[in-house]
Write a protein that binds this DNA or RNA. Sequence first.
DNA 1: CCATCAGGTTAACGACCGCTAACCGCCTTG
DNA 2: CAAGGCGGTTAGCGGTCGTTAACCTGATGG
Lengths: 192, 192
Amino acid sequence: MSTRTDAPTRREQILKEAARLFAERGFHGVGVDEIGAAVGISGPGLYRHFPGKDAMLAELLVGISERLLDGGRRRVQEAAGDPEALLGSLIDGHIDFALDDRPLITLHDRELDRLRETDRKRVRQLQRQYLELWVTVVRELYPAPPEAEARATVHAVFGLLNSTPHIGLLGRTAMESLLRRLAHGAFGSLGA
Amino acid sequence: MSTRTDAPTRREQILKEAARLFAERGFHGVGVDEIGAAVGISGPGLYRHFPGKDAMLAELLVGISERLLDGGRRRVQEAAGDPEALLGSLIDGHIDFALDDRPLITLHDRELDRLRETDRKRVRQLQRQYLELWVTVVRELYPAPPEAEARATVHAVFGLLNSTPHIGLLGRTAMESLLRRLAHGAFGSLGA
DNA sequence: CCATCAGGTTAACGACCGCTAACCGCCTTG
DNA sequence: CAAGGCGGTTAGCGGTCGTTAACCTGATGG
């Protein structure tokens, strides 16, 4: 667990505020002037840090997809050979992500089509690989259902876990354990 | 079950295509010319049927919210006194909706903030009432969890059921029964 | 101590978008 | 058969948006 203590760079500030604004009002609904204002500079000043508005969205989506996949792969390494523990670990990791980076989780399946084809393909590939991690372990644990069904199940559980943006009043840890229970309950129904 | 055989009106064509386009590219990402082109007329021709682009989105969102709530209330009437059957009925109804009106389900929690305050409040109120239907029956069936938890659970299951936009290759009926099983599995975890 | 450069500023341009204006043909109906 | 309105059309206006141009300033380092 490496925690950063140094101040965020201007680039990072911009990305964070852009993520929040894009999630709130949609990519096309946010102007560069607003993003600039959110970090205390004015619109065109952003172009010292990014070649364009598209590039900000691209970096956000590629970034989150890479971090999700990396985290998933790390967990596969750690819990190799114990599918049950691994699935639990993947669920916990995804929940942490959904609760910590709410705007990014929102963007991640909402604004994908606003990317240039190159970036979009890259993001989709990363997402597919991440999903594949889940599908593999789900199929080890529940061999009965056909692959398409396992895939759809994982998708649906993602939808369940990512539903968190809408909610507030339950507290972080309570929400965490609730989502964990619900996800396990959903997967469990594959065995019955 | 009342099925319509008469041809759709121009208004209905417009709403359907607008829903599809809004879901695909976002409200701000679609121009009125595109919507017009999708129904074979050109941009400004739409203003013979709607006072503006906002009004199309408003009618779509209010419409879907009302239909969801009406269907839910009907099911509450039909299955009154049998919470288990009622929850099953609500789940089935929501699944039908999610599979039949995919673009609308997408819009419904994605573009709500693009509405004028009046319409937004109305939609939110309808959504809240619909959610309340679910929360009531869930609390009857699983009295242990506090209300906030029941509410978050219903939200999460909505996320699960609405995840269907992303998927295709499983076939309508297979998807239907899978989602039903997953939703019951998630709710079931509240009793353990 | 001056040159450089990173990181800002404001002005402005061209494209696009929602919407209005003005016009028109066709069906309906008294 | 004339009148009117329904449902279109094209032209164009005003505003906004992403981006570029030109300029400025304070810190840095040889």
